[in-house]
Simulated assay, not measured.
Amino acid sequence: MEYYDSLRDRQNATDVIPDVKKIAVLRADTLGDFIFILPALEALRRTYANAEIVLLGRGWHATFLENRPAPIDRVIVVPPYAGVSEETEFPENQNELKQFFAAMRAEHFDLAIQLHDGGRYANPFLLKLGAQTSAGLKTPDAVPLDRWLPYSALQHEIIRYQEVVSLVGVPKPVDSWPRLAVTQADLDASLAIVPAHQQFLVALHPGASEPRQRWPAAKFAAVGDALARLGARIVVIGTQTEKELTASVVQQMHMPAQDLAGQLSPGSLTGLLARCRLLVSNETGPQRVAGAIGTATVGIYWCLNMITAMPLSRLQQRPLVSWQLHCPACDHNVLYETCKHSDSLVASISTAEVITAARELISQI
């Protein structure tokens, strides 16, 4: 009851904060998750046009955002911090963190915004920055910030973070879809890995951090073969840890394909996707990047992902949804509680559905 009493009684101020010269934004995670906050950041920039916006992120943010048009002025890399920049059980270096937070207090942030998660770990981190005003999300077990909203898991991520910045007077943007600039450096880096060719490019991404949300490699291979027969040059992308998976797709294909697992940085990935006519992917970071730079996508979604990450347009985005809630191995309903198995929950989406959607998009471009 204390949580809900606080929710009713808290100060729900939504006015623009006067005289803000420096804003800290916390989001220290992956490229795909960063894409979700771009509309909120763009709106924040328009509202606080004269303030410096500093992203507290990871090392890749600093490299990726250097010389790239973006609403971020500067990136400060967050050191290993359990539950924020690392897993919750990660051993922290207390001396390093002490020096980091001392440096952050010396920044004299006027406003600190938590766009990271529900706040169990992120809110204590944010409060240590010493900003005059804090804002963000709050689960029942998280400490409150000056201005906060309750965290609901079943909400679209893009809308979630727009609502957070509305706490500090930021109006909802007219265009809610993330937009990411592609630089010449992105394109050059991708050309060094995948040289220009007369065939049009199609990328397949069979990976996903959650094994249950991976479409089978054999089905990706069948899609790759079908699109290669239409004249596409197929590239299969993934992280270093997904090499076995990407190799499986390539090995099961009858047509040629290039395995790029572990070869792409965030920049070269962006450049490559910008050159692709189409990406066929599970719901992952590359799928979000492709949507943000205007590349057509066919996305494989589990039903709960459609709630939190559904593309808002259908002009170049074709989401295909699996409504399977029971584990194929043990028939356990995984909607509220998981089981020990990792069998795919999206395998029921047919190869024919994906090929049809892909052909439609390719024919429109």
Rank of each mutant, 00 (worst) to 15 (best):
I300W: 01
L245S: 09
R10M: 11
L260H: 14
A43R: 02
H108S: 14
A247R: 14
S265Q: 04
S265P: 03
A82L: 01
H326D: 15
E242K: 12
R68A: 00
V170Q: 05
H156Q: 10
P173K: 05
T246A: 12
H197C: 10
G294K: 03
Y3E: 11
A222M: 06
L44Y: 00
L97I: 02
Q317W: 04
Q199M: 06
K172Y: 11
F34D: 00
P79L: 01
D331H: 13
R179W: 07
L201P: 07
D110T: 00
V334E: 09
E283N: 09
P178H: 14
L38A: 06
Q317L: 06
Y161F: 13
G291V: 00
A82T: 05
V354Y: 09
K138F: 08
G119H: 01
Q213S: 11
G169R: 11
N67R: 13
W177H: 14
P18K: 05
G271T: 04
P150H: 02
C339P: 11
L315Q: 14
L56Y: 10
A131V: 06
A290M: 05
P328Q: 12
A49T: 08
K219P: 02
I355Y: 09
I349L: 03
Q213M: 12
V174A: 15
G285N: 08
H332A: 11
T239F: 07
I300L: 13
L260T: 12
K243F: 09
A62R: 10
A228F: 05
D29G: 09
A226Y: 03
G136R: 08
E353M: 13
F34R: 01
W177Q: 15
G238V: 10
S85Q: 12
G32S: 06
L111D: 01
I23F: 05
W323H: 08
A257E: 03
K98R: 12
L41C: 03
F200T: 11
G207V: 15
L204W: 07
T47W: 06
Q252L: 13
D175A: 10
K21E: 10
C303Y: 09
S348L: 09
I365A: 14
G169Y: 11
A221T: 04
M253V: 11
H205R: 07
L278P: 11
V194W: 02
S322M: 01
I158R: 01
L126W: 08
H332Y: 05
A296N: 02
W302D: 00
H108W: 10
Q213K: 15
Q198K: 13
P79S: 00
A357T: 03
R229Q: 15
A292L: 02
Y151T: 01
E360L: 10
R147V: 06
S350K: 06
E92K: 02
A112V: 03
L315Y: 05
R58H: 01
T139L: 14
D117A: 08
L191F: 05
F34K: 01
L55I: 02
A142R: 01
M306A: 04
I234F: 04
E163N: 12
H108M: 15
Q99V: 07
V25P: 00
V77E: 13
H341Y: 15
D343V: 01
